[in-house]
């Protein structure tokens, strides 16, 4: 920075700092010119059909089928009709996760099933869908790491309500390393943009035709 004491005749001009500032400014300028640090615009969501598999980073979800189901009332009542959606879910995360519930009636879902952002057409009922693993003797709501489970979503159909011809799910993707100072143990969906409170990104739209006449 300074000349050695004792009368050095060479005097160096301080060029390092201006040069560094110039370099940083150039870099920032180029970055800004290319659109800044914001996420590049995503491709529109993929349109998928029955049997399609969506990689949700922490989970792998295969949309198997959709059908109507009937559950007779053991006490001789009318019984209940359901719209069922069958998924095969593989937990790729490092801990047991719970199935939770899909987004319903404008409300966000919970846990794994929150990644099923929206179903169209919406089936209105009071309690929303029930989601569970039902094919292993005792109903379970756990998705263990490295295991694949058949998750069934059940939307109860009110009397006289017709099941739709087909249903379409907006599917989101989980962020394996959610931003934030302390990692939230809850599952977090990847947002559409970096703006605070942005809605989750729709990675894929899966359309399943509803098969009729099945029994629960």
């Amino acid at each position: 920075m300074t000349s050695p004491p004792g009368g050095g005749t060479r005097r160096r001009r301080p060029v390092a700092v201006p040069l560094a500032i110039l370099a940083v400014a150039t870099g920032l300028g180029i970055t800004a010119a290319l659109g800044g640090f914001a996420k590049a615009p995503e491709a529109p969501p993929e349109q998928l059909g029955p049997g399609a598999t969506v990689d949700q980073k922490l989970f792998l979800t295969k949309f198997v089928a959709s059908r109507t189901a009937f559950q007779p009332d053991v006490y001789g009542g009318e019984g209940k009709r359901f719209l069922e959606i069958e998924l095969e879910v593989t937990n790729k995360s490092d801990r047991t996760q719970l199935v939770g519930s899909p987004g319903h009636a404008g409300k966000k879902g919970l846990l794994y099933a929150q990644s099923l952002l929206k179903m169209t057409p919406e089936i209105k009922n009071e309690f929303g869908p029930i989601s569970a693993i039902t094919d292993e003797g005792v109903p379970s709501r756990q998705l263990h790491p490295g295991m694949t489970a058949t998750v069934v979503l059940r939307y109860e159909l009110e009397r006289g309500q017709r099941a739709p011809e087909q249903v379409t799910f907006d599917v989101g993707v989980f962020d394996p390393e959610p931003p934030g100072f302390s990692a939230d143990p809850d599952l977090t969906l990847e947002p559409e943009s970096d703006v605070e409170g942005a809605p989750p990104e729709v990675e894929a739209r899966v359309t399943l035709p509803v098969r009729r006449g099945g029994t629960g």
Binding site: D94, T96, H144
Partner: peptide
């Protein structure tokens, strides 16, 4: 707790 660090919660079937 598996050797690779994966955590399996006790099953809810019991």
């Amino acid at each position: 707790l598996a050797e690779d660090g994966k955590r399996y919660a006790a099953t809810d079937k019991v």
